[in-house]
Design a protein around this nucleic acid. Structure first.
Lengths: 354, 354
DNA sequence: CTGAAAGCGCTTACAG
DNA sequence: CTGAAAGCGCTTACAG
């Protein structure tokens, strides 16, 4: 019941192991008759090369890793799926890893590159680094950073155009008549949070609108964090009339909490978010959100990684994924009653900018 | 720049390779001083064992594969995530593979078991087998089949209680007043389709209701297939007043198409589905659906696989995942106007059963 | 063109 | 207890 090895094939074909190996790897053109003898033996024995052994002697695996903080988040799953498709087209397998956003797991996954278990990795982390990850990435070398940054790592990067997206979302809210706009972000220090915040602030400034510290919240990327931020915002003396939640996941938390509190979106409160996850258009309300292409994210990352492995792409490379605003049903004009007057009353507030 | 090997460590510690290996694998209790020498050398050199080499000589990898037809489908992603968590708790890594439901990819993934690239696999296929897959599973041995069956494979299985779920969904529709109920299934021959169909038919029969062939459709598991089945159903002379779509994915297709055609759910048409994907409660309308626990699916599958590898679980084992109906907003009483009378008129139709 | 042999980096029976 | 050596199944310089 032992699986046949290349030696068995060689014996059966009356040839040397080397000849068989070379033939199987197409590094040699054998006379037809000889080639057939090998192929027949392979057939008959049901021989399958042992990939582990090949990997050990060759030092490469034709396998890539995709490390995500949460494979259950639809946007990340969609990126993984696209990366897989592109990797396959380029002759690579893709292993998908769930890091649960734990640095220890990210580190051990990255070490599989040094191991030659995989040739390289696409890393989608989702926390700020204390330096460990940066060092590991530098050591692993064949890594592309997608969606979030790891500072100090000299590798290619693929980010969404966060700043433009943030500005797009905010301008849309302003154009619809909102002045008191809250910002619900992820953790501070992440490029997603900082980029989208910069876009938000830029758009507010353009419009001559103040950015109030109490209206900009930060926290984890989770439904719960979105819900919590929403509740805090609504319990303010003068709640905002619109929210820019910088991820659909956060917006989902906002929607759930709003439902519970009986506030209607968009009648009582407008919401714009970011990502455009698969079912965003079917939610209630349909989410107005900044779209970034998961497909392009995955494909570009995979291509960049393969290029890097083959020395065809520089480590300084940066790729920006374009964004666009998708208007659906979660935004409307602010309710007549509210904040218009309130915001005037607060004109002199020292916490205001601009 | 070459990564340090166990030989380097041995040299640095002034010991044999064997001693180092045994110490690192805790198969030996060295005098404290000696142990420290090794640990220091490991530290200093930054030694990390080469997993590939270990795997080749040991013949096992402490790694499991999770093969899914579509990692981008939220339910599957959730199962993968749970399987990963359980595997990690049991000391195994989990690689997630996207097979795209292509048999050639499933086969090559399965062959990684024979390869010793992975110790075993959880296989979630989604097509009927022509025998190839069954043979590969039999050969690979350390496989657990989840969600869908592969006939002729003598391995453990984890299925939802499809029949009960199908009956639950159908009875709910009947209890709400529906008589003309359509069934939108996946491909014929899959246990999900057949089991849920059996439950559907059982519930209809219980209620003394006919099952009309034109009202039961089968097709791929895709949004598109759901939309198409819906359109065909609605263009019938007497369309159904309710649909049991046996997967949320299908229901999402139905909802989209209904939106386009201007039919309102649940006022014009009631819909029940199956799965309860993550955002089902936030859709418009909130989906009334049969819940199956993705978490339990993933955890049980992983545990069964590890048990199988360790010879602790028999290949005949079957585990059934309980289901329950979650009532939300996609079902209401049938519209006054319709089918009540129509269905009487068709009493004598030969295509009717029972 | 072809084969014998070394080597990839571990683990583990075997002998001391 | 400890080490020298064989072996896991391939690939590939090297020599013929």
């Amino acid at each position: 019941m032992r699986s046949p090895t290349i030696r068995d094939v060689a014996k059966a074909a009356g040839l040397s192991v080397a000849a068989v190996s070379r033939h199987l790897n197409r590094q040699i053109a054998l006379p037809d008759e000889t080639a057939r003898r090998i192929d027949d033996a392979v057939q008959r024995l049901g021989y399958q090369p042992n990939v582990i052994a090949r990997r050990l002697s060759r030092g490469s695996s034709e396998t890539l890793a995709f490390i995500t903080s949460d494979i259950a988040y639809p946007f990340f799953a969609a990126v993984a799926s696209a990366a897989e498709a592109e990797a396959a087209a380029l002759g690579y397998s893709l292993l998908i890893f769930n890091s649960r956003n734990e640095i220890s797991r990210e580190l051990s996954l990255l070490s599989r590159i040094t191991d030659h278990q995989v040739d390289g990795a696409i890393l989608m982390t989702n926390h700020v680094d204390d330096g460990q990850l940066g060092e590991a990435v530098r050591k692993a070398r064949f890594v592309v950073l997608a969606d979030e940054d790891v500072s100090g790592a000299d590798v290619p990067r693929v980010f969404a155009d966060n700043e433009t997206g943030g500005a797009l979302a905010t301008r849309h809210l302003i154009a619809t008549g909102h002045h008191r706009i809250a910002f619900i972000g992820g953790p501070r220090g992440l490029v997603s949070t900082e980029g989208r915040l910069a876009g938000f602030e830029m758009a507010m400034k353009e419009a001559g609108l103040p950015t109030e510290a109490a209206l900009t919240r930060f926290g984890f990327y989770s439904e719960q964090a979105g819900a919590e931020a929403f509740r805090e915002l609504m319990s303010m003396p003068e709640p905002p009339t619109a929210i820019f939640a910088i991820a659909d996941l956060l917006a989902v938390g906002v929607i759930s909490a709003a439902r519970e509190m009986g506030v209607t979106i968009p009648d009582d409160l407008s919401v714009v978010s970011f990502d455009d996850i698969p079912y965003a258009h079917l939610l209630n309300p349909p989410l107005t959100t900044v779209h970034q292409s998961a497909d392009e994210f995955g494909r570009v990352s995979a291509r960049l990684l393969v290029d890097l492995i083959h020395g065809r792409s520089g480590s300084g490379e940066r790729h920006s994924i374009p964004v666009k605003l998708i208007e659906r049903g979660s935004v409307s004009a602010p309710p007549r009653s509210s904040s218009q007057d309130n915001s005037k009353r607060r004109q002199g507030d020292p916490s205001q900018t601009g």
